[in-house]
Design a binder for these strands. Structure first.
Length: 508
RNA sequence: UCCUCUGUAGCUCAGUCGGUAGAGCAAGCGACUGUUAAUCGCUGGGUCCUAGGUUCGAGUCCUAGCGGAGGAGCCA
């Protein structure tokens, strides 16, 4: 970044020969920066480079710009010029550049192949072609980096997602993965926006934990002990000798810590990586994924469900608004129903359905189930899909599950059989949110812990929240990559994170 | 972890009854062209995942292993 201050700034202006009459502080707050080419808006121009999205959307014909990026395709005309499509990731489309044979740099045109990097200065022109508003008539072309066409893995054709997973370092250069990256970014921003607008505190909960069981699956161990030595010794493992003096793991949830802040500074949320060492091989599980976990004091289950619905609608709405170009691509090439699905989500109230009511609907459905329906049993994928994809055809929030199916921290209902749990189910992806009102009563919580085979003493700090100034509170967890699956229509969650970690695979 | 499918050219795949290998795309060369998944012609390109086995002979059949995909479970 070339924003500069003080002596450096004076030197720069001395070199440029003029000092714009704008106070530095004012320029900073007006979202501008001093650059080598004078004052320009941050985010549009970087040094002397203009982003392609800006050229395509707002650059006036006649203006001179410099663009830099990677070549998508080149088409030559023997009349003595070439078309180069340049992509810099700033938007879905590339910029068509017309390079005449007399342009300095044209002598390297044969090396301007798919994947090569270029810097091109030229004049913005209204396009003669039908597929773009403007194009760039090159005045100078600089080949920054070659990409040998014989060995460069990406071609001007569709590749399978399986193949692209093997070249995860190059796949963000493709249409699909560029679009996913931008949508992921828009989703992250919308998530922070949603909570910040509502006065939530963003809390960073620990990645490393020594709570042996957080109630959400197998954990990865963290150790500095020499495993080779340990294997040879054949003795017992003494975690007192380990870095933390006890057995440590990667977190499977920030919820327990988030509750601490909910019960002190108020509404809060976490947004961070989560690790599950389950041997899960599906299109919707990752060993390392990102989770959003809001936690709110003085919320009951109804408040919690209302927040979850507003949350999903906010994020989906923002993405549709801000990444319309990428969404159009997903709708054309990935899943032709994805925009309709999202509209449907925005336009309708989520169905709220108790577990008991869901069981009744499934029993009366007349469907043949691979797994039988019975009150007290877990709902299977086929049951959840039936509810969201066939029966209601929209998101469904299931609540009040049997207590035997759910972890210790969920609040027990007066019926003695159910807890105030909720799962938000969406078409195709399934469970995207899991949450609950938390058990705030000390005696009930301790009872439930024992019922679940846990020792309350191991969670003394968690139990303390109920001992001192306990309040009703609630929260939920949203799987960020599942949200990306929902929004993009991508089938496999491994394609919804830049670098996926699953059993037998953690490259890049 | 279980079930099913799958592994052949850079990529996507075909390969019949067991008889030593094919297409499209990509690449290289050429033609043509304000083109935009351009088009047309020619050329080059193979450890048929690995290790065993059956057989005169295995890409093809059998066994084991290792990948990959889909479904299920666990969950977000």
């Amino acid at each position: 970044m070339s924003t500069c201050y003080g002596a450096e700034r004076r030197r720069l202006f001395a070199r440029l020969g003029s000092v714009p009459n704008v106070p530095l502080r004012q320029s900073f707050w007006q979202n501008t920066a001093v650059t080598a080419s004078g004052y320009q808006r941050i985010g549009v121009t970087f040094m002397s480079r203009t982003r392609i999205n800006h050229v395509l959307q707002t650059s006036e014909p006649g203006s001179i710009v410099n663009v830099r990026g990677w070549v998508r395709t080149r088409r030559d005309s023997k009349q003595g010029f070439s078309f180069v499509e340049l992509y810099d990731g700033s938007c879905f489309s590339g910029l068509q550049i017309v390079v005449d044979a007399n342009v300095p740099g044209y002598e390297h045109i044969k090396e301007v192949t798919t994947g090569a990097s270029l810097s091109v200065t030229g004049e913005v022109k209204a396009s003669q072609g039908a597929k773009q508003r403007v194009e760039l008539l090159a005045q100078k072309l600089e080949l920054l980096g070659k990409a040998d066409a014989e060995t460069y893995p990406l071609q001007k054709k569709q590749h399978s997602f399986e193949f692209l997973r093997e070249i995860a370092h190059l796949r963000p250069r493709t249409n699909t993965f560029g679009a996913i990256a931008r949508v992921r970014n828009a989703a992250s921003a919308a998530i922070h926006e949603f909570f910040q607008e509502r006065g939530f505190n963003y809390v960073q909960t620990p990645i490393i934990t020594t709570s042996d069981c957080e109630g959400a699956g197998q954990m990865f161990s963290v150790t500095t002990m020499d495993l080779h030595k340990l294997a040879k010794s054949g003795g017992e493992v003494d975690f007192n000798q380990d870095f933390f003096g006890k057995h440590a793991s990667l977190t499977v949830s920030g919820q327990l810590e988030a509750e601490i802040f909910a019960c002190s500074v108020g509404d809060c949320y976490t947004f961070g990586p989560t690790f599950r060492a389950e041997n899960s091989n599906t299109t919707r599980h990752l060993a390392e994924f990102w989770m959003v976990e809001p936690e709110m004091p003085f919320y009951d289950l109804d408040d919690n469900m209302a927040l979850a619905e507003a949350f999903i609608k906010h994020v989906v709405g923002r993405i549709m608004e801000r990444r319309a170009d990428d969404m159009q691509f997903f709708n054309e090439r990935i899943d032709t129903t994805v925009i309709a699905t999202l509209r449907n989500i925005l336009d309708h109230e989520f169905i709220r359905l108790s577990y008991t009511e869901a069981i009744e609907i499934l029993e009366k459905s007349g469907q043949k189930w691979e797994y039988p329906i019975a009150w007290g049993g877990d709902l299977q994928s086929e049951h959840e899909r039936f509810l969201t994809e066939q029966h209601f055809k929209q998101p469904v929030i299931l609540f009040n599950y049997p207590r035997t199916l759910k972890p210790f921290y969920m609040r027990c209902n007066e019926d003695g059989k159910t807890v105030r749990a909720m799962d938000v189910l969406v078409p195709r992806v399934g469970e995207i949110i899991g949450g609950s009102q938390r058990e705030e009563r000390l005696d009930v919580l301790e009872l439930r812990m024992k019922e679940c085979g846990l020792n309350p003493a191991d969670y003394w700090w968690y139990v303390d929240l109920r001992r001192y100034g306990t309040v009703p509170h609630a929260g939920f967890g949203l799987g960020f990559e599942r949200l990306i699956q929902l929004v993009t229509g991508m089938v496999n969650i491994r394609d919804c994170i830049p670098f996926h970690r699953v059993p037998k695979s953690a490259d890049f």
